[in-house]
Amino acid sequence: MKNIINQLINDEAGFIVSAELVLISSIAVLAMIVGLSEVANNVNQELEDVGSAFSCIDQSYMLSNAHGHKGCTESSSFYDQSDFCSGQWDVQ
């Protein structure tokens, strides 16, 4: 029994493998956190661009004197004012 305990105490075969595994897994976790943070920032920027594009849509276009089935019209106009928070950098 004393011989088996001494063999277990002196056995270091799995130590190097487990230390390398901890080092590699911690590097992988840190890289994943940085990568997901960058993905989140880029998705946020793209959604901000989509919101800015929607705010640039002209909502005041109108047709005057539109007639029946043949689609006859005589004039059209638009008037657009800038909306609240319609700038490109307003969405945070």
Rank of each mutant, 00 (worst) to 15 (best):
42 N>R: 12
9 I>W: 14
83 D>R: 08
74 E>A: 03
90 D>V: 02
45 Q>C: 06
22 V>R: 11
48 E>R: 15
3 N>A: 00
62 M>T: 08
56 C>V: 05
75 S>K: 01
76 S>I: 08
53 A>E: 15
26 S>I: 11
74 E>M: 05
32 M>T: 15
63 L>N: 09
66 A>S: 06
76 S>Y: 10
70 K>A: 06
64 S>P: 12
5 I>C: 02
35 G>D: 06
37 S>W: 13
4 I>D: 10
1 M>W: 00
24 I>G: 14
77 S>T: 02
58 D>T: 12
68 G>D: 06
92 Q>H: 00
70 K>T: 09
21 L>K: 06
85 C>T: 01
18 S>G: 07
73 T>W: 04
77 S>E: 07
13 A>R: 05
22 V>E: 10
54 F>M: 08
49 D>F: 07
7 Q>C: 08
45 Q>I: 07
61 Y>V: 08
43 V>Q: 10
15 F>H: 09
66 A>T: 03
32 M>I: 13
16 I>S: 07
69 H>Q: 09
10 N>R: 04
87 G>R: 03
62 M>R: 12
63 L>S: 11
69 H>W: 10
88 Q>Y: 00
89 W>V: 02
55 S>D: 14
42 N>V: 12
89 W>E: 04
57 I>V: 14
25 S>G: 06
5 I>V: 04
35 G>Y: 06
15 F>P: 04
51 G>T: 07
60 S>E: 05
61 Y>C: 11
22 V>D: 15
79 Y>H: 02
9 I>S: 04
9 I>P: 03
26 S>W: 13
60 S>T: 04
65 N>G: 13
16 I>M: 05
14 G>V: 02
14 G>W: 04
36 L>A: 15
66 A>V: 09
53 A>W: 14
48 E>H: 15
65 N>L: 03
49 D>I: 09
22 V>N: 11
33 I>N: 09
72 C>V: 14
19 A>G: 09
53 A>H: 15
13 A>W: 07
51 G>H: 06
46 E>R: 15
28 A>Q: 14
43 V>I: 12
6 N>Q: 02
26 S>M: 13
32 M>E: 14
67 H>G: 15
56 C>L: 12
83 D>K: 04
12 E>Y: 14
75 S>C: 03
83 D>M: 04
83 D>S: 08
17 V>Y: 00
38 E>T: 07
33 I>W: 09
31 A>T: 10
14 G>H: 06
91 V>R: 00
29 V>M: 13
13 A>E: 08
75 S>Q: 02
9 I>T: 03
20 E>T: 03
25 S>V: 09
82 S>P: 15
6 N>L: 03
17 V>F: 03
